[in-house]
């Protein structure tokens, strides 16, 4: 019998996605009963028909955190009135993404910065407790923090 990697079980659930290339820089991702279009790895244009892969990652992280607040807040007796998360990500070297000959560095994300704007009827200290709990439970945050410099701040609004 092989031993488990620490923190996992042999029955660990697996999520699945299937990505089908359409044409050019566009693909469709299929997950369970959903599908979504992905346009490019990263885009430097003002607008595109669909989000890029990097934007999906940022959006997914924000969605993960928002859902985390929704799951955790009631356990602290906190009712959320409004919640918005703004995120920005920066690559180590965008020119490496373009394959620029002679550039150093890599096209991986170097930093992700985020601001969480939350309005809730609760003491600031309690909301911060909720945020700590969200961080502990977030799959994407816990994945990314191991390889990217994450910098989040909590802004409590009335």
């Amino acid at each position: 019998m092989s031993s488990n990697v620490s923190g996992t079980s042999q029955q660990e659930f697996k999520w699945k996605a299937r990505v089908s290339w359409l044409a050019g820089d566009r693909s469709t991702a299929y997950t369970r009963n959903n599908s979504f279009l992905i346009e490019k790895q990263a885009s430097f244009k003002e607008k595109d028909p669909s989000p890029s892969a990097i934007e999906y990652l940022l959006g997914a992280l924000g969605g993960d955190i928002a859902a985390g607040f929704n799951a955790v807040a009631p356990r602290f007796g906190v009712s959320i009135d409004a919640l918005e998360i703004s995120l920005s990500g920066q690559l180590n070297n965008s020119l490496a993404l373009l394959g620029v000959i002679g550039e150093s560095g890599h096209p991986g994300l170097e930093t992700i910065e985020g601001r969480i704007y939350i309005s809730a009827e609760a003491e600031e200290a309690v909301i911060e407790q909720v945020w700590r709990s969200v961080q502990a439970r977030s799959p994407l945050l816990n994945t990314l923090k191991r390889c990217v410099d994450l910098n989040f701040s909590l802004v409590i609004t009335m």
Binding site: L95, L98, G99, V100, I101, G102, E103
Partner: peptide
Amino acid sequence: YVFYSNYELMVEA
């Protein structure tokens, strides 16, 4: 297109 970080490299190419 092929991108270069500097003109010397591109002229060599």
